[in-house]
Nucleic acid binder design. Structure first.
Length: 366
DNA sequence: AATTCGTGGCG
DNA sequence: TCGCCAAGAAT
């Protein structure tokens, strides 16, 4: 039989694929904390944490979250700072802000009961088509497809999809939907993701253990990792940043809370900014602190230098101690400022790179 | 439609 | 050391 690249096998083969995948899942599927749950709230939290984040990373956060916020109402009643503290280090902090917003919406509009209709789930902040499909199939066993990174890779390989990834989404959704086992949507979707995470991996797929080996066109080419087809990403710019630890006479430190929108939104940080052309680091820090807080400081000794990579740029943080001189500090470019002791830093959410600064402060202080 | 959003692990 | 990429969504 001749098989065309980019198209699904006939319905008979599709049935074989469903059966073999579900059979494989029964034997080799992963045991995960959220897998046997049916509480849509708990499943929702897992789906959001797992966006662009590996299972291994999520495991450390998930149980802690459910312990702190066991119910949707407890979450809705919580302070956003408390929520962000629990999310600290997990990244993509808009996820945490959206979870909190969505919880408030569910309480206000649905009396605290998580909605069971696809369109209502999709309308919640932070939930797109894939997450909505994951929640509704997992919690309610309703037949909606998913299309995460795993499924894109599996399906693109299965049919050797001859389209670059950003443009292939429409076809991939169609493939995921037509392949879905409508009698077992929950297990089928979970099985797809397990297959992608453990067998059909990005770099060295274990094709000899794949239930779909005999039907996979990419396997037959001998170079399955050629799919999905991607465009190379542009190089990430590197920014040099000056950061000030502003000490008061009472051994307190001045910190600011970032605006809710944008990078690291809502988190606390030590003030600072980008070094300009022909400027020394102390000059940069002095200028940035004047611009951001409208105060005068004296820049002192170097504390630590930290290299950190974000998703689309890299930074080097050059951190210096500073001594507060004069002026009433104002949150000119942040939403809040606060003088805190070293111990009080632990109660507030900081970005990962700033946690390294705090660690250095502790070592120097002890 | 193309960007912007964190962090960790891996080859 | 560096680029890739992970249970994507919002704008």
């Amino acid at each position: 039989m001749k098989v065309e690249s980019g198209t699904l096998p006939d319905s008979k083969i599709c049935k074989v694929l469903r059966t073999s995948l579900l059979d494989w899942y029964g034997k080799f599927g992963r045991t995960l904390p959220w897998r046997n749950l049916r509480d849509p709230y708990a499943i929702w939290i897992s789906e959001i944490m797992l966006q662009q984040t590996q299972v291994k990373t999520v495991l450390g956060y998930y149980d802690r979250w459910l312990q702190k916020f066991p119910t949707l109402k407890s979450l809705a009643a919580a302070d956003i700072q408390q929520v962000l503290k629990l999310w600290e280090g997990l990244g993509y902090y808009s996820r945490a802000r959206n979870i909190h917003k969505a919880a408030g919406k569910i309480v206000a509009e649905y009396n605290g009961k998580f909605p069971q209709e696809f369109d209502r789930i999709l309308a919640l902040p932070g939930i797109g088509r894939t997450t909505a499909g994951g929640i509704i199939s997992s919690a309610f066993n309703q037949p909606f497809p998913i299309l995460d990174g795993n499924v894109k890779r599996i399906l693109a390989r299965l049919v050797t999809l001859p389209v670059l990834l950003p443009k292939a989404n429409k076809q991939l959704w169609q493939l995921s939907e037509s392949l879905l086992d409508r009698q077992h949507p929950r297990d089928f979707n979970q099985a797809l993701m397990d297959l992608g995470a453990t067998i059909c991996t990005p770099k060295s797929p274990k094709c000899d253990r794949c239930p779909w080996m005999n039907h996979c066109l990419a396997y037959q080419t001998g170079t399955p990792t050629s799919w999905p087809m991607r465009t190379s990403s542009p190089p990430r710019p590197h920014k040099i940043i000056g950061v000030g630890i502003i000490w008061s006479d009472r051994q307190q430190i001045l910190i600011d809370r970032r605006l809710d929108d944008g990078l690291l939104g809502g988190l606390w940080e030590f003030p600072g900014g980008k070094v300009e052309e022909g400027e020394t680091l102390p000059e940069c820090i002095h200028r940035e602190i004047k611009e951001e807080l409208d105060i005068e400081v004296e820049v002192g000794s170097h504390l630590i230098t930290i290299d950190h990579a974000y998703s689309h740029f890299r930074v080097t943080l050059n951190v210096y101690h500073c001594h507060y001189i004069s002026g009433e500090p104002k949150p000119l470019e942040s939403q809040e400022i606060r003088w805190v002791s070293l111990d009080e830093l632990d109660e507030l959410p900081f970005p990962k790179a700033n946690l390294k600064i705090i660690e250095a402060l502790r070592q120097e202080n002890s």
